[in-house]
Computed example of a mutant assay.
Amino acid sequence: MDEGMLLLRLARIGALEHYITLTTREFGEELGMSQQAASLYLKTLESRDLIERTKTRSGSRMRITPKGLELLQGLYEELRSILGVRRSVDVIGIVYTGLGEGGYYLSQKGYREQIKEIFGMDPFPGTLNIRLSRPDLPLLDLLRRGPGILIKGFISGDRTFGPCLCYSCEIEGEKGVIMVPRRTLHNDTVEVVSDRKLREVLLLDDGDEVHMRVNYPEVAEDEGTVSEDHGP
């Protein structure tokens, strides 16, 4: 089994966004091979700096490294060239209540005006917080890296507001915009912007499962550079 497929298996069980703890026996079962073979594969990935691994009493604590992610992205681009560019991807997530940060950021003129100009909507002053299901977590990192539509960062008063990438989406039949900050503490979350309060329109409560279709723009935007990222 080649390195790309091994990394893909690890990414599927969460090692792209988080550290995971796994025994060689469990990894062998995941791959359908012996514990000894799985151990050898992990040593190979570690020696080539494709995973970071620390042995613990309960197994190996590991995560895919930036070099490993680069390899996965190369495979992704190769598949896109073979299979054709995907125009959208379907994801599943769970609704939860955030800290109200979305409303604060959408109250900033710098964000609101760009959303109006690009997506033709006057955003409701609040976002719908969606925690992605585990199998869809690798997608979130790809969304952070593009090809999204750039909402540029700006300075307001004495504060710098960072850029984010956006994608149009449909969530349970309602149109919206997914905002993906370039840097965030919430590594499993997307925020959905709409011109309506989606919780009320879709009768959603915390813990409800929702299905979204995320649309890729036809032309990737130039992301530019921003010296500081403090939000949204």
Rank of each mutant, 00 (worst) to 15 (best):
T184A: 05
L142Y: 07
D208W: 04
P123S: 15
K116C: 11
D222W: 07
I178F: 13
R196K: 15
I149Q: 06
L132M: 11
E221W: 15
G162W: 01
L204Y: 09
P138D: 11
C169Q: 01
G126W: 04
L203T: 07
R131F: 06
F124V: 07
C166I: 11
P138N: 11
V201G: 05
E170I: 14
C169D: 04
V210M: 06
T127R: 02
S133D: 08
K152A: 12
C164V: 12
V193A: 10
V214C: 01
T160D: 02
L128H: 03
G126F: 03
E170D: 09
K116Y: 15
S168A: 13
L143M: 14
L185F: 07
K152L: 13
P125L: 11
L204R: 02
V192M: 09
V219H: 03
G162K: 00
M212L: 15
Y167S: 01
E200K: 11
V210K: 05
D122W: 08
C169I: 09
V193E: 10
L185H: 07
C166K: 14
E170F: 12
I151Y: 03
E174M: 11
L204G: 02
N187K: 12
T160G: 00
V177W: 07
F119W: 12
G120V: 14
E223W: 03
M121G: 05
F161A: 02
L132W: 15
I149V: 08
E218V: 13
L185P: 00
L185I: 08
V219A: 10
E218Y: 15
P217K: 09
R199K: 05
E174T: 08
D208I: 08
G162T: 01
I118D: 06
N215Y: 06
R196V: 15
A220W: 05
F154G: 14
M212H: 06
D141L: 10
N187F: 08
P181R: 13
V192Y: 05
I151K: 01
V192I: 14
G120W: 13
K197F: 08
P138H: 13
I155H: 04
R145P: 00
L139N: 00
